[in-house]
Design a protein around this nucleic acid. Sequence first.
RNA 1: GCCGCUGUGGUGAAAUUGGUAUACACGCAAGACUUAAAAUCUUGUGGUCUCAACAACCGUGUGGGUUCGAUUCCCGCCAGCGGCACCA
Length: 825
Amino acid sequence: MRKVYDHKAIEKKWQRVWDEKKVFQTDNDTSKKKKYILDMFPYPSGAGLHVGHPLGYIASDIVSRYYRMNGYRVLHPMGWDAFGLPAENYAIKSGIHPDKITKSNIKTFKRQLRSLGFSYDWSREINTSDPEYYKWTQWIFLKLFEKGLAYKKKALVNWCDSCQTVLANEQVIDGKCERCKKSVIQKELKQWFFKITDYAEELLADIEKLNWSESIKSAQRNWIGKSKGATIKFEIDISNSDGNSKSKKTNLKQILNTNNQISKQYIEVFTTRPDTLFGATYLVCAPEHKQISNFKFQISNWNEVEKYIEESKKKTDLQRSDLSKEKTGVEIKGFKAINPVNNKEIPIWIADYVLNTYGTGAIMAVPAHDERDFEFASKYNIEIIKVIEGGKLPYTGKGKMVNSGKFNGQQSDEIIKKITRLTDGKLTIQYKLRDWLISRQRYWGVPIPIIYCANCGIIPVPEDQLPVELPTDVDFFPNGESPLTNSKTFHAVKCPNCDSPARRESDTMDTFVDSSWYFLAYTTDKISNFKFSRCFNRDLNINESSEQISTANHWLPVDIYVGGAEHAVMHLLYARFITKVLRDIKILDFNEPFMSLKNQGMILAEDGRKMSKSFGNVINPDDIVDVYGADTFRLYEMFIGPFSDTKSWSTKNIAGVNRFIKKLFNIEYQNDGTIEEYTKIKIEQLKKSVSDDILNFSFNTAIAKMMSFIKDKNLHLNKKFWQEFLILFSPFAPYASQELWAMTGEKGLIVNENWVKIDKLKLNESTKDYMVIIGGKKLGSLKLITNISDDEIIEEISKDQIITDKLNNKKIEKIKIHENVIILM
RNA sequence: GCCGCUGUGGUGAAAUUGGUAUACACGCAAGACUUAAAAUCUUGUGGUCUCAACAACCGUGUGGGUUCGAUUCCCGCCAGCGGCACCA
């Protein structure tokens, strides 16, 4: 009679046993080798778990189970990235406190994750909105503040009017808010920054050491955007200006008096192509360029210039960076710049295609070698100076040199040095990376631990007063100021220095600060025992028991990090930065948090579009688990395609893996009896390839090979081989494999079994299938013993009917053996 | 424009260091069981030619090259996806 696969009963039964026996509690036996296998923790959204989440979690779970069975101690935790805007926005609509919403969402997420049979150690669960957690987020802020790496400054920042908060550069996509997709405007505001630019060079250089995908590494390189070049000074010849010389002279005097400087004035430009200096046709300054307004008395067409500056200010970043837009600009009249290499006088323009935030905010335009400069010069009929006129420096950089084409590639150091010597310029390295803007004018985040005192200025909250807890008596309605300002209990405080009345900082931190260190928090048995000062420092002699010192640091860094590629720049760059800062203050002793990173591909809906509520094409994992079971769900997501590829959901295909599991419940095997060689070799091959595939994250092929194995009619299993198969299968389908394991009469749990041992002798069988080839064409195949002479092979070939027929009496002169191929000549 | 990745049946996809394609699964077709359907099982399934089988030839985006042999390596194109982008 056919046995029925009742997935619900099996799941319920074994879930209870696992919980009771605490089988997934972290093993702290330090005599074993460690593996820290980490998933990117989710934001617990109101929509619940999405089918995209488990893809990575299943993979990391398979790998964790594999390592545990191979005798490693494994840290495999899960937690919640719980602060953030959606909960707050929902609170504004519903009036329910974000904390309450978040906790209820977490409950749902946790239930869903548990139903999928993941082997997380839930006792180490963390939640970034828990004061026990975020006091350490605040502690990190204080450390950065101490080091001068956290600072407040007035700057043009990205402002989202709809979210009523500032955004980091990384959160602005195509000039729009990452979250609400509304246009972002530029506002001058006083904000908190982390000085990530101090680490630009190291963040870039260390990318080479990482075992990450090429696409993520290249995204980080692009974002950091290093260019080597030179800054070159162009003298401005004010005396030589035409126009009304009388008023000019008095005004020049004014400048000399106020600035207390010698009469020479310069504009500095940054260029990656100093070798084209001879072709500099004009200078262009960004409209915001600071020096321009200093010269307003020398500029004869100031009215026109000022008007252009005002117009540019009104434009959004998106409007200004629109490539399809025609370039605009205004020539500055009244004085010119002098090319230091040939003393040629060239005009100065302002134009908004030059960015004030990059380089020096001014460029030398070389229309003969730059497409954009060429376009601009053509539009305004500027006479183009060819490099050849002034003589050209030998070009030794990589990349193309074309007329009116954009340069690509890096300039060689040699040429840059030569030019800088010639012109009193200097070698300069520029990065596109800018400092990380971390303050937010919203409620549901970590309060910045800073106090403003009228006497003492900006004072950090003393460490022993952490955490600065979020008050509950606030209105959430965003009005451009942090909601914390309207709390009665939060705002007023005494200065820790002088005890006079002071006020707290009311901004909160970007949630990416929370997630930039969370992987450290899991290393202590529970978050309330966590302490940076004693956990991570191996160098300092701290009066703590050695046990406490060893429990944390031995796990780090993370060995395998699994998550979505959407975090290519933000989270991954920030976490790398914070790690390096903590290393520099001797809290950590490694350079990179995640040596190996695996990105799961996106799962699209059946219609090939993104899953989204508005399309009505969202698949809820609960429904699949309910109908087919957790194991089918796990197998399906792993079998659907290569782990890191984008793929579409296909409900039809779930049946395939479900059939496979059902088949296993009707497998027959002999209790003993002799097993023929064929089966023995096949099981060894399966053991080898499933093990290899797991380590390579090639789960789809591992499953395919297990299916082939079960399908093979020539196999005859005994109990030993069947149990070995179940061990191979157990990381993929923990419930079904456990049930089948128990059905073989075993009382113990399969998770406590050792991984299979591979019999290498059997694997490298003594006979081999050889392919016989002539002139690149296949004649047939031969089964031969290894270690056979050429003459014997020729004799074997002459005995083979199929091959001799195809040979058609052709004489074999020589043979060559390569791998499993016999080449006839 | 620059950087990175990808391109294989009707579909999702396999293929050690180059070893002679399309594993596994879906779908489809035929058959078995059934009053019937579902489920399950069996067989077949790249294309052309052929009643059919064998055989042959063509086939991994495209055009070349290296090689006894190329999905794999090299060069040139084309298409798609992702990142960056008036970054000088």
